[in-house]
């Protein structure tokens, strides 16, 4: 099973060049039943990544470009009166899919954002008093542009908390870029990729993640990280228990990707940045990433006293 995941990751890396770490994180986020926020400039391969992921995991894929005039119904769907049957009929919106790419989520109004985020959390949509479950798995990859902030509605912390991870792809390295430029169109490649895992297999993997063993010492380590984020004075506000749960789940998924049935401190350390950076705000200036590194270095892995 893990070899199938490995093949999938390799396949995606063949399309999104030089971003294996980010791809693995994205897959881990998927396996941990989380949602992914990619913060990047346009044209960095976000769409390609989402597309490729959808293909290799044989997921149904939709893409929504968020704009400021978008309404919740544009995402969730609407009930339309059918004059023939004289009844209202639901037209499901793009949210009814397995992998949703929510492009430039910060361009939408808070109302629209809220509708999506609620669906992400609840994994169901309530229209006209009828709750309709979303398909399984349900994986949202949202993107936002960190630079152009004019006319955007930045996501508040409480909303950001709904995303398990935030990553950014960044510019490719020189060699990667040369390979990229000399190859064929990546988007086209992604469309022709073969699925590596069936949906059922993916669901099975997701169940497996929950069974990954996290020992008492490891949980202790996670808790000390959380505790230090609150008491260490590095951040305006510490990590929430939900962040802690997310951290552990992400670490479990990462351990599964590494082919282990138990979590090691390395797993926690790898996912710590992606899981926490969008939830924290450094108190002493400097980047949040630097503060998170400080947090990491302040907490001993094995208890010493």
């Amino acid at each position: 099973m893990t070899t199938a995941i490995g093949r999938a990751i390799t396949a995606v890396s063949g399309v999104v060049l030089g971003k294996e770490e980010q791809i693995r994180l994205a897959v881990a986020c998927l396996l941990a039943r989380g949602h992914l926020l990619i913060e990047d400039l346009p044209g960095m391969g976000k769409t390609t990544l989402a597309h490729a992921l959808a293909r290799v995991f044989s997921l149904e894929y939709r893409r929504v470009q968020f704009t400021s005039d978008m309404l919740p119904a544009d995402i969730l769907g609407v009930s339309i009166f059918d004059p023939d049957s004289r009844e209202f009929q639901l037209r499901p919106g793009p949210v009814f899919t397995q992998l949703l790419l929510a492009d430039e989520i910060n361009r939408a109004t808070p109302k629209t954002q809220g509708a999506l985020l609620e669906a992400m959390e609840e994994r169901q949509v309530t229209l006209d008093g009828v709750s309709r479950p979303l398909p399984e798995p349900f994986y949202v990859i949202a993107t936002q542009n960190p630079v152009t902030q004019a006319g955007t509605f930045p996501l508040p912390e409480s909303q950001l908390d709904r995303f398990l991870m935030r990553i950014s792809l960044g510019y490719p390295s020189a060699e990667t870029e040369i390979a990229l430029l000399s190859g064929s169109d990546r988007r086209q490649q992604a469309l022709t990729m073969k699925p590596q895992l069936s949906t059922a297999e993916l669901m099975q993997m997701m169940l497996l993640v929950e069974k990954i063993h996290a020992s008492a010492d490891l949980i202790d380590y996670v808790q000390r990280l959380l505790g230090y984020s609150r008491d260490g004075g590095l951040f305006v506000a510490g990590l929430s228990p939900r962040a802690g749960l997310g951290l552990l789940r992400a670490a479990r998924a990462w351990a599964l990707l590494a082919g282990r049935d138990y979590v090691t401190p390395e797993d926690v350390q790898v996912v710590l940045g992606p899981v926490t950076s969008h939830r924290l705000q450094g108190s002493a200036g400097g980047t949040t990433a630097a503060s998170i590194q400080q947090l990491l270095e302040a907490v001993p892995v094995v208890r010493r006293s």
Partner: peptide, 9 residues
């Protein structure tokens, strides 16, 4: 070795 390094490293 700094304390925050995992045992394996």
């Amino acid at each position: 070795p700094p304390a925050h390094l995992p045992p394996a490293q």
